[in-house]
Design a protein around this nucleic acid. Structure first.
Length: 314
DNA sequence: GTTCGAGTTCACATGCTAGC
DNA sequence: GCTAGCATGTGAACTCGAAC
């Protein structure tokens, strides 16, 4: 059940989070706090509701004043925590969150590239959500798969290191491109200064570019216009001090109409921001037959030496 | 062809000031 | 009171050449 292509990609994505010093150092503090919030014998609801506490968890690693050391790592740590949480809640589904662009299949990377004249801009994707098609190649055990390219040559699912062969993934993404769904998540720890960034990128993606100004989206024949669904979301802590947000504030208005919505790591506040736990039903519902069922089945596998122990939650 | 290390580039958030 | 914009040092990713 956890030996198919989406699960192999999820494992690689999460393991790469733990490979960075920023996340590893934070995790030493976050893990006991997460375990304290979950309590003993937690269930699927407790795990899903972690989304209401991610701000609280993130702030346990905050320091007073403004240390340059924390400054750089802060944003990366928040992205990593969101990526870890989304993968935790979508385990067993066809939804995978990837922080490293190098793990995103090339056709998907091409599709979300914004071209400014001859310059292929950075796609401004902090986290890329892949919702794989509901096809046997993405749901069956890899040992039962026989993937062949257009020249009838077999493409192994694993490379010689035992990890997911990205060439096979690139081929499948190209072949089934129109059945993929993509979600881009823009993560920012502070809200006020950075709300313009997701607002403007969402405008460009929603407009499909501005051909009169030679601004286009996609390359190599891949475009988000041709995939099944595309969403752009904003997820913030927020880290701004002593700030009471209301629906009339500019920072709130700027992200209100994003195609994927705006979220934060605390309980939903009407007309301001939703809890990150709502993103699954809002944007990624097609990738799962029930988010709670998936988590419930996975809980025993989070134990040490089990197949999902890489989440390091127990 | 592979691995390693040095150098380079980019993205990151807060506290503050200026302007309205 | 609200908003925009700036300066700042560090971590991670990336590039490239040297060594094997």
């Amino acid at each position: 059940m956890y030996n198919n292509i989406p699960e192999l990609l999820r494992k690689e994505a999460v393991q790469r989070l733990f490979a960075t010093n920023t996340f590893n150092n934070s995790w030493i503090i976050w893990k006991p706090e997460i375990q304290r919030i979950l309590g003993d014998n937690f269930d699927e609801n407790a795990l899903l509701n972690l989304g209401d506490f991610l701000t609280q968890i993130f702030r346990t690693t905050g320091t007073s004043g403004r240390g340059q050391g924390e400054l750089s790592g802060g944003g990366a740590a928040w992205e990593s925590l969101i990526c870890w949480y989304i993968n935790l809640c979508t385990v067993g589904s066809r939804i995978v969150a990837v922080k490293k662009m190098s793990l995103v299949p090339e056709p998907i990377r091409d599709a979300i590239t914004v071209n400014y004249g001859n310059f292929g801009c950075n796609t401004e994707s902090d986290i890329t959500i892949l919702i794989f098609p509901n096809l046997p190649e993405y749901t069956q055990d890899i040992n039962t798969l026989n993937i062949q390219n257009n020249q009838n040559q077999e493409l192994p699912v694993l490379n010689r290191n035992g990890k997911l062969n990205l060439n096979a993934l690139n081929f499948l993404a190209s072949r089934d491109f129109q059945q993929y769904e993509i979600g881009i998540i823009q993560c920012k720890t502070n809200w006020n200064d950075n709300a313009q960034i997701p607002m403007l990128w969402d405008m460009i993606y929603s407009a499909g570019g501005f051909r009169g100004r030679n601004i286009t989206i996609g390359k190599n024949g891949y475009s988000i216009q041709n995939i099944h669904q595309f969403t752009y979301s904003f997820v913030t802590v927020p880290s701004n001090q002593n700030q009471n947000y209301s629906s009339n504030q500019v920072a709130v208005k700027r992200v209100t109409n994003l195609s994927g919505g705006n979220y934060w790591g605390q309980p939903t506040e009407q007309h301001v921001a939703k809890s990150i736990k709502e993103i699954f039903t809002n944007n990624f519902n097609n990738g799962t037959s029930g988010i709670r069922n998936g988590i419930r089945n996975a809980i025993p596998k989070f134990n040490p030496n089990q197949v999902l122990s890489y989440f390091d939650i127990i």
